[in-house]
């Protein structure tokens, strides 16, 4: 009886997982397809990877995306880490409110956030482009780092900092010698998560990008709406491989793999 139940649940999980991976597998397979058509299979080839290497626009978009993700997750890493460490120490009344507001960017629907930034940046007269993109992305990257670091601080033994102070360390030394090394896994996995989120973001980017700055998701999005060239498949497949590496890294860093949320 028990065995039967377990087998049932295993089948259920396997089917659902298969469905989850189906579209990804389809994209990967077609990236090796010899023809542009997806109607009939016409054999394997690496054509699209070769074409991709020559596609200036697509590579430019990829470069932009990587710069954007790097800058936003980097800024979020600094602001989020310092903020989480500091928040645990200060006792201000505004603390709760600021903490709540700072997590809003991942709580409210993305489209609202995009709209908010678009309207605000326009009103401020900021030129749309890399600057607005970085500001927008940093806003939703911060909560990932902040929450990761915050929860790792909860598990941090307070007496370690006290011991260091007792041995003669100043607050700054305590931070760099003790706190930071111990929360580093959380900082890094928060930043990796933020990096991946930024790299994947379409909605906010569409609203805050300028006419001349393309990110990869924006380009894919416009192509999906007009007409797809399988170079995109090839690019997606490469990105998937990169994702595997990132997930693997973050797994190694933190015991608990962070889910995107």
């Amino acid at each position: 009886m028990k065995k039967g139940r377990i087998r049932c649940s295993a089948i259920y999980q396997a089917v659902l997982l298969a469905l989850m991976y189906l579209p990804i597998v389809v994209v990967v397979v077609y990236s090796f397809h010899a023809s542009k058509s997806t109607i009939r299979w016409q054999g394997w080839s690496l054509d699209w990877y070769r074409k991709l290497a020559g596609n200036r626009g697509l590579l430019e978009a990829l470069k932009n995306s990587l710069i954007l993700a790097g800058l936003s997750s980097g800024a979020a890493g600094v602001i989020g880490t310092l903020g989480a460490v500091g928040m645990a120490r200060v006792n201000w009344k505004s603390k709760g409110a600021v903490e709540y507001i700072s997590t809003l960017p991942i709580m409210i629907p993305e489209i609202i956030l995009g709209m908010v930034f678009m309207a605000f940046f326009a009103a401020m007269g900021l030129p749309f482009g890399m600057v607005t993109l970085v500001l927008g992305h940093t806003s939703f990257c911060i909560p990932y780092v902040f929450m990761m670091v915050k929860s790792s601080l909860v598990g941090l033994d307070k007496s370690l900092g006290e011991a260091a102070k007792d041995l003669g360390a100043s607050e700054v030394r305590v931070f760099f010698d003790i706190t930071l090394p111990l929360i580093m896994p959380a900082v890094l996995s928060g930043m990796l998560l933020a990096f991946a989120m930024s790299l994947d973001d379409v909605v906010i980017s569409i609203f805050v990008t300028g006419a001349r700055t393309n990110t990869l998701p924006i380009r894919i999005y416009t192509q999906l709406k007009s007409g797809v060239t399988p170079e995109i498949n090839a690019l997606c497949t490469i990105m998937l491989a990169v994702t595997f590496v990132i997930v693997g890294l973050s797994r190694m860093l933190g015991k608990k793999a962070p889910a995107r949320g």
Binding site: P23, I24, V27, Y221, L224, V228, I232, M239, L240, V247
Partner: peptide, 19 residues
């Protein structure tokens, strides 16, 4: 469960288009 989650949302949508 997490891996598809981490792949580009657009890529997965494209997969559905093909399907």
């Amino acid at each position: 469960v997490v891996i598809p989650f981490w792949t580009s949302a657009l890529m997965r949508m494209y997969g559905w288009i093909i399907i």
